[in-house]
Write a protein that binds this DNA or RNA. Structure first.
Lengths: 346, 346
DNA sequence: TGGCACAAAGTTAACGGTAACGCAACGATC
DNA sequence: GATCGTTGCGTTACCGTTAACTTTGTGCCA
């Protein structure tokens, strides 16, 4: 039950409607696409027939015949732990208002998958593609360029842009993280968390921090990273390792807030005072970061703004606007986990 | 630069390849779909030409002509705060292995959007549709049934199923939440958080809890809910209200962990001892729930399992398997925020 | 050496729409 | 009353690909 036999499965087409109403196929098509060119009364009968037969237009046919598609391909590197979920969320709802449908792909930081997924998405002849990052395998760049459609790169802006980008300057984020810790009197920094080979954004942040540390005449940042997914358990495990191997460290920059949650847990279990003995700083401003104790200092990317600006950029480019790269602001949210001085209140 | 003029934009087709290689269009098509029917050497030349021209097949045409589509429509009610992001994540990667492409829609708990989005997704003639919930507007049910494709309802199982469902029994979750609190000695329960008119799952949990409370001879559950999105700030606000209006309450069931985070914050600010004076219980097992203090008792849905089983159900149904409803287990994770007795350790 | 099976390619006709064009009926215009 | 623009609809020709046939070429056997 529920599924009709394949033989009898008879999805209505424009022709079914046309036959039922007694007009030509094209008139029915017009009733949909240019309603004011069809008599009111006839239009009413056509709409009634469509409603009655539960007609759903076939966009495969429409897209093939017509000139424009209304798919927007969205390629993210992860969805888990909500890293890009809220960007997709706002982007999708903004596009929906223009009747654009999101087709989603998740590369999970795998460049081979990225090539495959981009190819797959392009095969649907989307009106535009939005993709996380500005660093892609050469084949991806080639395919996207050859497609001739607007390409919006999100989240990052540093580097070679294909067409249009909406993102943050990650090097400056890393610099701000380090600078803040140094200003609070921390001197031996560590970077902890997942640092995937293909997560160029994290690498840029780390390099930005490194530069600030060097400029301050402090010793190099200790790195304890893996290719795995970030999680509290990972943060806890790496932090324990760190305490053992590098007892001199007095501040930890985590690649994401969820990793920082684990770091806090590990430090508390080891009896370290935060922020007195050791500071912890995250990235991403997870919804729980203001609720853990001590509350977590972190960087808040304006995800909604990125989603919204991406939608706007897509629409602008579809309507022949010029390519444009927009740098989106972020905010260092200073909370308890790094605040040694009493200078600020929040 | 980047985008070719519309006039010159000349995306390669099978015909371009055919002409370049000097064979018929169909031979090129065969080289893709049934490679072993084409001479090895010719196949090599065809592949080389495709590579060179950056050929990307047009699935609009393929889908229109061929018999099967490889889109799977996925309809969720939210993505924000990662509620369903990890389901989509696992679902997508499992489908990818079968070369099925996810088309995503997010209704944001708006039934009108749901109708519109389902219609939009069906217009791409997907091979199957996976959708959150078993309670849909009548028109959605009608459209999905009329489509004649496999429909997998996720997350919930209680009620009328269209075709196949993979989800949890939310009434029993609510009952377990209340039963646990009662066993810990709490007697005046409250339900706090966003309770959207169209979030039937939350309503089922609340009813399940209500039934358990009544069975224990305790007074009715106090409700303090809104239609807004759940967030820590919302939880904090509602909890302050609750403390004022219903000082007798000694246990709070939050509709989501992020709301519970805010509740914890509010209670700590008011100087209440948790779990001594008042208990807090969440839903969803947010990644931070084990990291807040006190750590949060919550219900852990097996999201990955739901995603994986949904993918399996889709494949089974596409290959003419029978419709089947699967009830997925969940787990009550007892942590500090409700544990008054010393009986358990974790 | 003729006949036949099979492999490898070409031909043709859909698939369900949309766009361009054609044409009748009608009122407005001079 | 002939001319013309408009309105409202029908005809026809694609869009790029696949499936079902048809044709051609090749090796094998009697």
């Amino acid at each position: 039950m529920g599924i009709a036999d394949k033989e009898t499965r008879n999805v209505p087409t424009l022709a079914s409607i046309a036959e039922r109403v007694g007009v030509s196929v094209n008139t029915v098509s017009r009733a949909l696409r240019a309603p004011n060119t069809v008599r009111v009364e006839l239009r009413r009968r056509i709409n009634a027939a469509m409603e009655e037969l539960n007609y759903v237009p076939n966009r495969l046919a429409g897209g093939l015949s017509g000139t424009r598609s209304d798919i927007v391909g969205v390629v993210v590197t992860s969805l888990y732990y909500s890293e890009f979920a809220s960007i997709v969320d706002t982007l999708q709802s903004a596009l929906l208002e223009q009747d654009l449908q999101v087709m989603l792909a998740n590369t999970r930081y795998n460049p081979d998958q990225e090539v495959r997924l981009v190819r797959s998405i392009l095969s649907w002849r989307p009106a535009a593609v939005a993709i996380i990052g500005v660093d892609h395998p050469p084949k991806v760049v080639e395919l996207l360029k050859a497609s001739g459609i607007p390409i919006i790169e999100m989240w990052d802006v540093g580097g070679e842009v294909i067409d249009t980008a909406v993102g943050m300057d990650h090097a400056s984020i890393g610099a701000a993280q380090a600078t803040h810790l140094i200003a609070e009197g921390y001197a031996r920094l560590a970077f902890v968390g997942s640092l995937r080979e293909n997560d160029r954004r994290a690498q840029k942040r780390l390099r930005g921090a490194e530069t600030a540390v060097v400029a301050a005449g402090l010793p190099e940042i200790v790195r304890l990273t893996t290719q795995q997914n970030g999680s509290p358990d990972l943060g806890e495990r790496l932090t324990h390792e760190l305490l053992e191997q590098h007892p001199e460290v007095d501040a930890i920059v985590c690649n994401s807030d969820v990793v920082a949650f684990g770091a806090l847990r590990a430090l508390k279990r080891s009896g370290r005072r935060i922020p007195g003995e050791i500071g912890v700083l995250g990235f991403g401003d997870n919804e729980a970061s203001s609720c853990v104790s001590p509350s977590l200092t972190t960087v808040r990317p304006d995800r909604e703004r990125i989603g919204k600006l991406t939608a706007e950029a897509i629409l602008a480019r579809i309507n022949d606007g010029a390519p444009k790269t927009t740098v989106v602001d972020w905010e260092l949210i200073i909370r308890e986990s790094t605040r040694r001085r009493d200078s600020q209140n929040q």
